[in-house]
C-alpha cells in the first residue's frame, strides 16, 4: 500500500518538502498541512520541482490551513487537490501508512 507523506513546514524555512520529494517512492501521496501549504503555491522557486514530482505522485493540500493563511485555491499549482478535515481522515485511512516530514 502506498504511503501518505505529510509536510507541515514552509519550504523556505525547512528542507522538509525538498527531502520528502526526494525520498517519497513513486505512487505515493503527499499532503500539505500547516505552514507546508505554502509549498503548494504557483510561481515559487519550488513549483517546477513540484510539477515534476506530480508525474508519479499525487498531491493534496488541507483547505482550512490554506484559508487561515489567506491562500486562495486559485493560487495552487494545477492538479493539487484541496481536502477538508474529513478528506484528511479519508487519506490516512486509505493509505494505512503515514510518514510525517516534521
Amino acid at each position: 500500500m502506498a504511503m501518505l507523506h505529510t509536510v507541515n513546514k514552509s519550504p523556505f524555512e525547512r528542507d522538509a518538502l525538498e527531502t520528502c520529494l526526494r525520498l517519497a517512492a513513486k505512487g505515493s501521496s503527499v499532503l500539505f498541512i500547516e505552514d507546508g501549504v505554502y509549498g503548494a503555491m504557483k510561481g515559487t522557486s519550488f513549483s517546477t520541482t513540484l510539477s515534476n514530482a506530480m508525474k508519479d505522485k499525487t498531491f493534496y493540500v488541507l483547505g482550512p490551513d490554506l484559508k487561515a493563511r489567506g491562500v486562495d485555491a486559485s493560487r495552487l499549482i494545477d492538479g493539487i487537490k484541496v481536502v477538508d478535515y474529513a478528506g484528511f481522515v479519508d487519506l490516512t485511512v486509505k493509505h494505512e501508512k503515514v510518514s510525517a516530514w516534521v
Partner: peptide
C-alpha cells in the same frame, strides 16, 4: 535517494526527527 525511497516505502512505521 532512489534506493532510500524504496526502503522507506517498505517500512510499517516511519518516525521523523
Amino acid at each position: 535517494a532512489a534506493e532510500l525511497a524504496e526502503i522507506i516505502d517498505q517500512q510499517d512505521v516511519v518516525l521523523s526527527f
